[in-house]
Amino acid sequence: MIQFNQVSKRYPGGYEALNQVSFQIKRGEMAFLTGHSGAGKTTLLRLIALIERASQGQIVVNGQHLGRLPNSGIPYVRRGIGVIFQEHRLLFDRTIFDNVALPLVIAGYRHQDIRRRVRAALDKVGLLEKERSYPITLSGGQQQRVGIARAVVNKPPLLLADEPTGNLDPDLSREIMQLFLDFNQVGVTVLIASHALGLIKSLQRRVLVLESGKLIADQ
């Protein structure tokens, strides 16, 4: 599903965020990405979501060589990736329903179908009764769950999450992780950047460890 071959990312000014990183994540696998802040976790996710391009090396996502992809092809690759952010990044002038519906609207689904899928996604994260509310009325954990519903609503084969539990207390974090486990169980490939080491350990999944841009462990 995700394949990195000797990937480096150098920012203008010489800072090297990733250095010769190679790994492979199979379809249907779930993996965690850890490391200190600044180790390159976010950069790695950004390369997969095509927010940035690698300076060197080869990245293949869902069978697509990202290096050969023209800019006009980026949107279509992104439709196959659900992204979840630490700071949720919901649109505060729209209802929960409209927030979750966004990827479907972008992909051009028909109205009734959007309705059905959004409600299913909201039901999955336990927020169906909130569909008419605005994000500002929700707690941090609820907002994160809306973010997850938005990421999975068009059933992408790949989920990326950047510190999804960063601002949450341990109980809420556990709930969120359970959601990811559920999605993984139905065949979604999941890659989560996190430094909640205790929680990660308890889940007993593959863990990739980054340190100053290098992959130092793959357990």
Binding site: P75, R78, L91, L102, I106, A107
Partner: peptide
């Protein structure tokens, strides 16, 4: 700006 960024992240084309 925020809305545009989110749209792009979820695969919106420039035309969209």
């Amino acid at each position: 700006r925020q809305e545009i960024e989110i749209n792009k992240l979820f695969g919106a084309t420039d035309a969209f």
